[in-house]
Nucleic acid binder design. Structure first.
Lengths: 154, 154
DNA sequence: GTAGAACCTCAAGTTGACTTGAGGTCAATG
DNA sequence: CATTGACCTCAAGTCAACTTGAGGTTCTAC
């Protein structure tokens, strides 16, 4: 029932390279049990965690963010529904922001840019809060708040 | 009217570091004119291109993809609306796919996982086409088609 | 016409996310 | 019980996307 999977098996099932699994383990993103002979054995529930990591990575989300999001999801036992729910609420805002930004990019390409406001001056998508308006006229940003914060922080 | 901007000015306006602009130029993602003294001068319309690059990068989209998407957007003259439209249709599918995948991830976290189908066995979000069903029972993938292709290709 | 800020090139360093390889061990099968 | 494939560790290499630094030039403002 709680059969354990070898690294190769997990790799096959998740599409994540064994070397990547080693790496994830080295940075504490996943964990494994060991056989008496020191070989990794993964409980089934790790598959889900690894799958999520894989999707996130495929989306270009840094592993540090993933680590942060999954911090409270336990690895020593199968996570409960509540464990996942807690993690999801933590992560959802980030994902939502990212999705919104993607939408803004799509809009900037096909909507805003395609619609005639090529100069970007009046477009609300470009300058949501006019945070940089003081810098003078001209196009300023497509980026959302998070990005704007980042840009000014450095 | 077609005043040219120095690298520092562009950096300030886009939030992209001057060194990054140098780098983008070195890989052909952007171009600049030069003064008699060999300093970079950017036409205004480059700001938009650089802003798009910046947003894309912030979303974790590889520069190679961005380069591909912007390949047909001219740099030696202000792109026309049609130039942008062509680029946008090329890019839109990719962005759409990415957004869809993000949505799948969100759903996998708050919807699917939160809704009780924790075992991932029956969830349509997880195994959209049952492409890997032959590999045996158990959870297989959250990834879309593109990712599945990539996973099997290697 | 000169000081200082901004700029130039080029090489090397950095970070994230891995992969590859060497050299050796473990486990399932005939 | 020996072989063969899967696995182990650890160090080094790779690739993208930059940043940093050295050493020198240009621009702008007084």
């Amino acid at each position: 029932m709680d059969e354990l999977l070898s690294v190769g098996e997990v790799s096959r099932r998740t599409g994540v390279a064994a070397s990547a699994l080693h790496y994830y383990e080295s940075i504490g993103l996943i964990q494994s049990q060991r056989t008496s002979g020191n070989q990794r054995r993964y409980p089934r529930h790790m598959i889900r965690r690894i799958s999520l990591i894989s999707v996130a990575k495929h989306l270009g989300i840094p592993l540090a963010d993933v680590d942060d999001a999954l911090r409270d999801v336990p690895m020593n036992r199968p996570p409960t529904e509540d464990d996942w729910r807690r993690a999801s609420t933590r992560w959802k805002a980030q994902l939502e922001a990212r999705r919104a930004e993607l939408e803004r990019l799509e809009n900037a390409l096909v909507g805003c840019i395609g619609c005639g406001c090529l100069s970007m001056k009046a477009c609300s998508l470009v300058n949501p809060h006019d945070a940089l308006a003081a810098t003078g006229p001209g196009p300023h940003r497509l980026l959302g708040d998070a990005a704007a914060g980042e840009a000014t922080r450095r």
